[in-house]
């Protein structure tokens, strides 16, 4: 594998009323299948250590996480270099099951937002009532004109995942939304 792997916008950072940075390389695997299947949840917990997440939730164990994306789709988060192997492991464990896997690590970009004002920042660009989101929640929505998934990691810590092709758009958008002094104070 190439040694020159880079994330979408390496080391991109911005200090607004919240801290914004590109999160770097992140392993991501899309799993589509019957989430009610016992074999599937067993294979996942053996490979990642995470329990199957409930609707719109994330379960985390160490550096692995499972995120509920839709009634038949999970996003598996893992270290970037472990993703190809994890796909192979899971494909073997799920052979014969109604499930498909795809390593989408390099098709996405991840941004990290830290600070108590993250709700105010994201409320400017997404049609979501952010008071309903708590740590461990996931919300798929749009950020201005592009699709985004918002992962709430902690009370003041969220990640925004978007397609890599719109990473620059997303970064510029988040920069504008988090510009110092532009906090709408909706949630504080």
């Amino acid at each position: 594998m190439s040694e020159n792997l880079t994330s979408a916008l390496p080391n991109a950072e911005f200090a607004g009323f919240v801290a914004l940075r590109e999160a770097g390389l992140q392993g991501m695997i899309t799993l589509r299948g019957d989430l009610g299947s016992k074999a599937l949840s067993k294979a996942l917990s053996e490979a990642t250590g995470c329990a199957l997440p409930a609707q719109r939730k994330i379960t985390t164990k160490g550096d692995h996480a499972l995120a509920w994306m839709s009634p038949d789709e999970l996003l598996i988060l893992c270290p970037h270099d472990k993703a190809p192997k994890l796909v192979v492991t899971l494909s073997k464990a799920l052979s014969g099951e109604f499930a498909t896997l795809a390593n989408v690590s390099d098709a996405r970009a991840v941004f990290q937002i830290s600070g108590p004002g993250w709700r105010d920042a994201l409320a400017k660009i997404s049609p979501v009532d952010f008071s309903t989101l708590a740590p461990g929640d996931l919300r798929r929505t749009r950020a201005a004109q592009v699709a985004a998934a918002i992962l709430v990691d902690g009370p003041e810590e969220v990640r925004v995942i978007c397609f890599r092709s719109v990473a620059q758009y997303m970064f510029d958008l988040l920069k504008t939304a988090t510009a110092p002094g532009s906090e709408p104070m909706l949630y504080r």
């Binding site: 609707q55 719109r56 839709s70 009634p71 049609p127 979501v128 919300r139 798929r140 929505t141 749009r142």
Partner: peptide, 11 residues
């Protein structure tokens, strides 16, 4: 009804 989210029209 598939994911339980209440959202506005543009989503």
């Amino acid at each position: 009804p598939c994911c339980g989210v209440t959202a506005e029209e543009t989503e």
